[in-house]
Amino acid sequence: MSNKILVALFAAALAVLTLSTNAFASDENLADFHAEMGGCESCHADGEPSADGEYEFEQCQSCHGTLAEMDDNHAPHDGMLMCADCHAPHDMNVGDVPTCDSCHDDGRSAQ
């Protein structure tokens, strides 16, 4: 198996654990955490942000799966949002969970 595939599989497994348990919550920035797995190119084409964020969204899905494949908090947003709409990779730390009330004013909260 190539190193790229192994890294992607490891990253996906780690992401599932992180999203499901917050067991890896830390002071490490999400962008820095992802950069450790391959530099800025692990999320950005040629290390530069795309104009519309679509490339980065595809990169998220290649490791973490589509929103439709995720839990009940993510699936309803499939086709409407991109990961970075809620998870600000350069502003959030590993294990941070965005709250639903940043968009919804009906008292929902991420569990």
Rank of each mutant, 00 (worst) to 15 (best):
N29C: 05
L30W: 09
D85S: 14
D105F: 04
H104G: 02
A45M: 03
N3G: 10
M37K: 00
P89G: 08
D46E: 15
A23W: 12
A110W: 12
A75H: 05
S50C: 03
A31L: 10
L14S: 06
S102D: 07
A110K: 12
A68V: 08
L81E: 11
C100W: 15
F24T: 13
E54N: 11
A12N: 05
M80C: 06
S26R: 01
C83A: 15
H44M: 10
G65S: 03
A75R: 11
M92D: 00
A84L: 15
T99H: 10
L6I: 11
G39Q: 08
L9M: 14
C83D: 08
D71Q: 02
C100A: 09
A13D: 07
A23D: 09
S20T: 15
C83N: 09
Y55L: 09
D46I: 03
N22E: 14
Q61R: 04
P98R: 07
S26P: 07
H87S: 10
S50M: 01
H90W: 08
I5D: 13
A11W: 08
C43I: 03
G47M: 12
D52C: 02
A12H: 07
N29T: 09
N3W: 11
A12R: 14
D32E: 14
A110F: 15
N29Q: 05
D96H: 07
L81F: 14
N22V: 07
D78M: 04
C60Y: 08
L14A: 11
T18Q: 13
C83Q: 06
G53Q: 01
E58M: 10
E54T: 14
A35L: 03
M1Q: 14
S20E: 14
E56W: 02
L6Q: 11
E69Y: 01
A68W: 01
N3C: 03
C103E: 04
Q59D: 02
L17H: 13
Q111E: 15
G95R: 10
S50V: 06
A25C: 03
L67E: 00
D106R: 04
Q61P: 01
N3A: 12
G79F: 03
A11Q: 12
V94S: 00
D78A: 12
V7K: 07
T99M: 13
H44C: 08
P89C: 05
Q59P: 02
A31Q: 15
A8D: 15
N22S: 15
H90G: 02
F10A: 13
D101L: 06
A12T: 09
S109P: 02
S20D: 10
I5M: 09
G39H: 08
S50P: 07
Q59F: 02
M80F: 14
L81R: 02
E54W: 05
G38T: 09
D101Y: 06
K4N: 14
A25L: 13
F10G: 06
S2D: 13
R108S: 12
E28I: 10
S42M: 06
F33E: 00
L81S: 09
A23N: 04
L19H: 03
A15V: 05
H87N: 08
S109K: 11
P49S: 01
N93Q: 09
M37D: 05
I5L: 15
D27A: 08
A75K: 04
L14N: 11
S109N: 05
H87G: 09
D106M: 10
E56C: 00
V94I: 12
S20V: 09
S109C: 08
P89H: 09
L19T: 06
H104S: 11
H74P: 01
C100D: 04
